[in-house]
Write a protein that binds this DNA or RNA. Structure first.
Length: 839
DNA sequence: GTCACATCGTCGT
DNA sequence: CGATGTGAC
């Protein structure tokens, strides 16, 4: 059920979002949504008990989509039913059962079409389906978790623990559970709607300083949620008005004032309701979830921390014994009977498991128990669960990625390091400054990745926006969707390893392997530790600086940097007079003596940078506005091929595509979905996609086909709708189609055709608006239906006749059922009569 | 303007 | 499950 009307209510707290903004992140998925949508397509077969895997393939398509953007997915499944929801569940089961019976009956009577509609409504997502998907995911090294109870709480836990930075769902309840970033309405083109908890006050219409998340949650519970029916006559709007009005922090006392505050004298707030309210609140706060890191069940938040009496948690689930809980979370048990169905164990995974053509994700598993297993999750774990030890700057060791090389320990040049990991080094090292520092005139227009990154972070910082794109393929997580502060801090400060400043190089560099916790002692050439006490000799200085340059950029790691000291990034060192020694190595990079690293606050550096480097900033801004391809061209493409082509996690469902190619496609598809007018063909001087279009030749891969098919479908659907109206008008006016004022054409019949997308770029969007959201999902009908009507009315009347394939299967009687308001909404009535008048 | 309730669509070819 | 439409207050 969720919260009725919450998503439209959250319009102001949401923004259009694309998966490309989530690169390098980890995303927890409410798998039920995908399974349910997937099962809908093969509902008949499922209802008849026939064998099918269409729904599984549907889900894997999404998994693949995420992997192709280098996003780590964690699929979360529902577990047992909460007692509080038992009634709702029973009701659902009953209605499904009824639908099944009626469907079967109609099927016997041979009324296939009617039977179909009932059979679709009776699809139930069973744990067997979930397990089927889980098993496919295991083959691909994609993590799955079965929640002890509701997936919602589990998703929220993963999000709050920062194991997953985003949550994908269709259920508005996730907001109440306290997720920070939720992606709704994700489609196969990668577009979705992002709701951020930091913006919730905007939706409530409340000043930020007066806003508390607790208030938001109380508002939602008051409006009616899964655990508590609303008081009669109270919906979101009234609940919001009440919550904003009341000052009383004690909600139990405040609840009594509802009738007075809302002018609803007839309303009675019983003691029972108050108690149930507190229980419902506790259910959201303290539901039992599973912590895959600690491998134990716990509550989403600790009742002691929140001061919640234990008796209120009676609906929030009970704990299982350790072993059962673990196996349930892995998906090995049937959640209801707790009978074993499988015996998979994360610690006993063999590579052979995924043998065959199926490619395995390289993301580290959340189930990797050894916290020293590092990689991404190692970092997560450290930032999450080892905050205390972090103060000692204890770095976790990552597993040896290339044992032969790493044990050897002699090859310490950048080229060697990269080569050891299969990165092509025939070209220059990726982080190499493209234009040497000694050529300042050229430097002002050419930038390395870091520069652009920093500039971008600062530019966005200035504007108070979140960074949108990853431009530096090596700074995977620094950029996208991290708050600006985080981004700039990661670049500016002597950082600890956090999820936001990981990089490929960090993993590649031997530096990472130094265990600083040991004794501060490090061995030979491997010590590239940059500290104020560092004693790099002249002979090792060049090599050391080259490698430490990598390190400093992202993880300036040292146990001996004391508070207040700051080793600033190479970029800033070279730009600030105090930071640079003035010496340059043979790469043209300044060799920075760590002793002279300035102790400056990030803001001070930014200020200095801003005043001194205005031209560079402008140039960088110009560069920022280019597509990734254009940037690469401008800077000279030094990125090793392997990295540029993105990840290679494909399973064959969707071929792994270069991220840039995907972006190109999305740009095209975006413009295709939104526009329903053919008469405007110009793809409005879209500077961003210029070079992407040049790349189109490469774009004809499976993803292309997928995307354009989707586009085609949508277009056909729109056309079908339009045609229905047209038919209606036609019959009403008693006119032949030749006389019909609405222009009909056959364009939509071949929906998947390449190139149409650009032609359909609607004239509805402002040409100069780079943030246009056309074609992206929105929460409100005003944004969906109404804009469409505006599009229609603003443009010349036109209507595409769908192809035969689109008409087939839809009984024409539907057209007769259209209401006048619907017609006028799409502008047909008006237009047709207008045109008819002319005649 | 709100809210409650009923009904539809979700896929895929 | 959300979206949408409709009718009651």
């Amino acid at each position: 059920m969720g919260i009725t009307g919450l998503l439209p209510f959250l319009e102001k707290a949401s923004s259009a979002c694309h998966l490309k903004d989530l690169r390098g992140k980890c995303v927890a998925i409410d798998s039920y949504c995908w399974l349910h949508r997937g099962a809908f397509g093969c509902a008949e077969r499922l209802a008849r008990g026939e064998q099918t895997d269409a729904h599984i393939r549907y889900c894997l398509k999404y998994v693949q989509l995420l992997l192709s953007y280098n996003i780590k997915p964690i699929l979360v499944f529902d577990g047992r039913h909460l007692p509080a929801k038992a009634a709702t569940e029973a009701k659902r089961r009953e209605s499904r059962e009824n639908a099944r019976k009626r469907g079967a009956e109609l099927l016997r009577l041979g009324r296939i079409d009617e039977a179909r509609s009932f059979l679709r409504r009776c699809v139930d997502i069973t744990h067997e389906m979930a397990l089927q998907l889980i098993q496919e995911c295991r083959k691909r090294n994609v993590d799955c978790v079965v929640a002890p109870y509701e997936a919602d709480a589990q998703l929220a836990f993963l999000n709050r623990a920062d194991i997953a930075q985003y949550v994908i769902t269709e259920d508005s309840d996730l907001v109440l559970f306290g997720c920070s970033r939720i992606l709704f309405k994700l489609d196969l083109t990668g577009n979705g709607r992002l709701v951020e908890s930091t913006k919730l006050h905007l939706a409530m219409g409340c000043r930020e300083e007066r806003y508390q998340f607790v208030k938001f949650r109380q508002m939602c519970i008051l409006s009616g949620c899964d655990y508590l029916e609303s008081l009669p006559g109270i919906g979101l709007a009234k609940a919001c008005r009440f919550i904003l009005k009341t000052e009383d922090p004690d909600i139990k006392r405040a609840l009594a004032k509802i009738p007075a505050y809302l002018n609803m004298r007839q309303l009675v707030v019983t003691e029972e309701y108050k108690a149930e309210f507190l229980k419902a609140e506790a259910t959201f706060k303290h539901m039992v979830v599973y912590d895959p890191v600690e491998r134990r069940q716990k509550r989403l938040t600790d009742p002691l921390d929140e001061g919640t009496p234990e008796e209120y948690c009676c609906n929030a689930g009970v704990f299982l014994d350790e072993d059962t809980a673990f196996n349930l979370a892995l998906g090995n048990l049937d959640p209801f009977s707790l009978r074993p169905l499988d015996d998979w164990h994360p610690d006993k995974v063999t590579e052979a498991h995924g043998a065959g053509e199926i490619k395995r994700s390289r993301h580290p598993s959340i189930w990797q128990q050894n916290s020293s297993s590092a990689g991404e999750e190692g970092c997560e774990k450290q930032s999450l669960h080892a905050t205390n030890t972090q103060q000692q700057q204890t770095f976790v060791k990552r597993p040896l990625m290339n044992a032969a090389f790493e044990e050897q320990g002699t090859k310490d040049t950048i080229a060697d390091v990269l080569q050891a990991y299969g990165i092509e080094t025939a070209t220059e090292p990726p982080m190499k400054r493209l234009c040497p520092a000694e050529k300042p005139s050229i430097r002002s227009i050419a930038f390395g990745y870091e520069e652009v990154n920093v500039l971008e972070a600062m530019t966005l910082l200035e504007r108070g926006e979140s960074p949108k794109r990853n431009r530096n393929p090596f700074l995977v997580a620094t950029n996208a969707a991290v708050s600006c502060r985080e981004a700039s801090n990661a670049l500016l400060s002597p950082t600890k390893i956090t999820p936001s400043n990981r990089s490929l190089l960090q993993n590649v560099s031997p530096v990472k392997r130094i265990d600083y916790s040991a004794s501060g002692q490090t061995s030979g050439q491997r010590d590239f530790k940059v500290t104020s006490q560092s004693d790099n000799t002249a002979t090792t200085a060049v090599t050391a600086s080259r490698l430490s340059r990598f390190k400093r950029t992202n993880t300036i790691a040292s146990c001996s940097i004391s508070a207040g000291q700051k080793v600033i990034s190479r970029f800033f060192c070279s730009q600030t007079s105090t930071g640079s020694t003035g010496t340059v190595n043979n790469d043209g990079d300044p060799i920075q003596d760590p002793k002279e690293a300035t102790v400056e606050s990030p803001t001070a550096i930014v200020r200095k940078f801003k005043s001194k480097q205005e031209t560079q900033k402008l140039a960088a801004a110009a560069l920022y506005l280019r597509s990734p391809e254009a940037q690469l061209k401008l800077r000279g493409d030094r990125t090793p091929e392997k990295r540029r082509t993105g990840c290679d996690y494909g399973t064959g469902l969707i071929e792994p595509a270069s991220p840039s190619v995907e972006e190109a496609l999305v740009t095209k598809v975006d413009s295709g979905i939104g526009g329903i007018d053919d008469e405007t063909n110009a793809s409005e001087g879209d500077g961003l996609s210029l070079s992407q279009k040049e790349n189109d030749d490469n774009a004809l891969n499976t993803v292309a086909a997928e995307s354009s098919e989707t586009k085609g479908r949508k277009t056909v659907r729109l056309s079908l709708f339009e045609r229905k109206h047209a038919t209606k008008i036609e019959s009403e006016e008693n006119m032949g189609s030749d006389d019909l004022a609405i222009v009909l054409d056959d364009d939509a019949s071949d929906g998947g055709a390449e190139g149409k997308a650009e032609n359909r770029t609607g004239n509805e969007s402002t040409k100069t608006d780079l943030n246009t959201e056309r074609g992206k999902p929105t929460f409100t009908n005003t944004a969906g239906g109404h804009t469409r009507s505006e599009k229609k009315t603003n443009s010349k009347p036109s209507c595409r006749r769908p192809g035969l394939s689109a008409v087939r299967g839809k009984p024409s009687k539907d057209a007769a059922g259209l209401t006048q308001s619907r017609l006028s909404m799409f502008g047909f009535q008006k237009k047709s009569s207008m045109q008819l008048d002319k005649r």
